[in-house]
Design a binder for these strands. Structure first.
Length: 497
RNA sequence: GGUCGCGUGGCCGAGUGGCUAGGUAGAGGUCUGCAAAACCUCGUACAGCGGUUCGAAUCCGCUCGCGACCUCCA
């Protein structure tokens, strides 16, 4: 296979750049994981699948990826920045649980749901609460640089001081003067010297549930700090890819860049990748809007907005049919279309796995078909090389699938493609579906052996022109979710679309 | 209010100057005991108006509509 020049859209430069890892073949990738205080919803599914696909494709190209995705189990506050209540602790009080019980419970459900989407596990999945000493050390380092200050046992990052040496706002495209003047009510600043400053360490009140000792008293870390602590610990001070949802660009990732520069004098990541939001009726699906659908609700169909259940692979396919930087609009109609498309892909996978080249010297090569197949193979890779355009790649896979189906049903002879191209076509198709896109065959309850038995009876009945029995078997299979495919010389089954 | 982005055929969704995206839905056809599956063909899509160009969905301007971030959110 020829060398690929992968291009990646970098939020920092706002353009596609050639992907050149810092130390090939190694790639360090850090992705912001969930704050574990509720069930994972469709909005969590998108970055999980997006960066899983990035991981898969980079691995396919031969890179050795270290994928780190954190679990936020402390420090993420509700309400106004740096003034609200800890999300985990709030949920703990509501459910009368230990905060760690809440974190554990939703970490478990997150893992369960994300695994169903067939995502590879991260190589390291660190938790914020497991890295308190590292975070304290970072605060001390930033204080030593003179870019933070202590007030009543809390430590704040001094954005204005930082901005004299570095540029605060370069990721989100924000101008510091506008942030300063545009800040809402000036009396809500509290201890901060300036409203744009953010907390590195917060003093904990007596009733606060999650707290640790520090040089500044009992307290807990600020939200942005954990990612700096854990990414630098496991990937170094400057690594290749930092990913997450677009809504994290500001302030979270902006603050991470500031923290990284403040204590390590360099940007933490070379490439910043951000997936867009999933919308529902054109509006962002999110916790704060209360219009989110959890993954479990999708899998079971138990949600007022859902007309039916949608399988994990349908969801994965649905998300992959859009480029990750575009919004993707949810609707039952779109998901039903995705379900059909997914099943078509998987029926093709079964066929491709079992198909063999049929040597026939009397069949001539067909230049047009050959050219179409070769073009689709090249185009599928080119799409992935162009900032992981899974939507476009899938389009080319469907073109390959048409050829595969044609050969399978006898409408096209495999020899018209020649053995080399035919084999490459099958290999490309199966590699893309299974390895790169991560689409699995969702097997039903029925054993394949049983299906084969029924199909043998079906064939016998058909030969005997016992059409009543033929129809009976056909109906029976249909009720189990299978359709019978009658071809010229044989029969086969497929998943009902 | 500031910053940024979007508006593609019934629906979802690629595409950023000339080359069929694709899926799904619908229509017709081949095949079939009838079907199904599969394959083939089709609708003449680019918010509106103006401009640049030999040529624009694609570049520029204006208008309309929608959204994101600026406060926790993937």
């Amino acid at each position: 296979m020829k060398a690929h020049q992968l291009k990646v859209y970098n939020t920092l430069s706002r353009q596609k750049e050639n992907f050149l890892p810092i130390s090939p073949p190694f790639v360090g990738m850090y992705v912001c994981g969930p704050t574990v205080y509720g069930d994972a919803h469709l909005g969590h599914g998108r970055p999980a699948i997006t960066f899983d696909t990035v991981n898969r494709y980079l691995t396919h190209l031969g890179y050795r990826v270290r994928y780190v995705r954190n679990i936020t189990d402390v420090g993420h506050l509700t309400g106004d920045a740096d003034e609200g209540e800890d999300k985990i602790a709030k949920k703990a009080k509501l459910e009368q649980l230990e905060p760690m019980e809440v974190a554990q419970q939703y970490t478990d459900t997150y893992h369960r749901d994300i695994a169903l989407l067939n995502t590879w596990k991260p190589n390291i999945e660190p938790r914020a609460t497991g890295h308190i000493p590292e975070q304290i050390a970072l605060v001390e380092a930033i204080l030593n640089e003179g870019l933070a200050y202590v007030v009543n046992g809390s430590v704040y990052f001094d954005v204005l001081a930082y901005n004299k040496k570095y540029t605060y706002g370069k990721l989100s495209g924000r101008v510091i003067e506008e942030l300063v003047s545009g800040s809402r009510d000036l009396d809500g600043q509290g201890e901060k010297r300036n409203s744009v400053d953010f907390a590195l360490w917060k003093n904990a009140s007596a009733e606060h549930l999650m707290k640790w000792p520090s040089p500044w008293g009992i307290g807990f870390p600020g939200w942005h700090l954990e990612c700096t602590a854990m990414s630098s610990k496991y990937l170094g001070n400057h690594f290749d890819i930092h990913g997450g949802g677009m809504d994290l660009i500001f302030p979270h990732h902006e603050c991470e860049i500031a923290q990284g520069n403040a204590c390590n004098h360099q940007d933490p990541a070379k490439y910043w990748m951000h997936n867009n939001m999933i919308t529902i009726n054109g509006q962002k699906m999110g916790k704060s809007l209360g219009n989110f659908i959890t993954l479990q609700e999708l899998f079971t169909g138990k949600h007022p907005l859902l007309e039916q259940a949608y399988s994990p692979m349908t969801i994965r396919y649905f998300i992959l049919t859009a480029q990750y930087r575009s919004t993707l609009d949810f609707s039952n109609e779109a998901l039903r279309a995705a379900q059909k498309g997914y099943k078509k892909i998987i029926n093709g996978l079964r066929i491709a796995r079992n198909m063999h080249y049929d040597i026939n010297p009397e069949v001539a090569l067909d230049g047009e078909h050959l050219q179409q197949v070769e073009a689709s193979i090249t185009a599928a890779y080119r799409a992935m090389d162009d900032d992981f355009n899974t939507a476009q790649a899938i389009g080319h896979l469907f073109n390959l699938l048409k050829k595969i189906n044609s050969v399978f049903t006898g409408q096209l002879h495999s020899a018209t493609l020649g053995e080399e191209v035919f084999t490459k076509m099958l290999a490309t198709y199966t590699t893309f579906v299974e390895e790169i896109l991560g689409l699995l065959e969702e097997k039903g309850e029925v054993q394949e052996g049983l299906l084969d038995l029924l199909l043998r009876q079906y064939t016998e009945a058909k030969t005997a022109r016992n059409y009543a029995k033929v129809d009976e078997i056909r109906l029976g299979l249909k009720s189990m979710g299978f359709v019978v495919k009658d071809m010229k010389d044989r029969v086969d089954w497929a998943y009902e679309e």
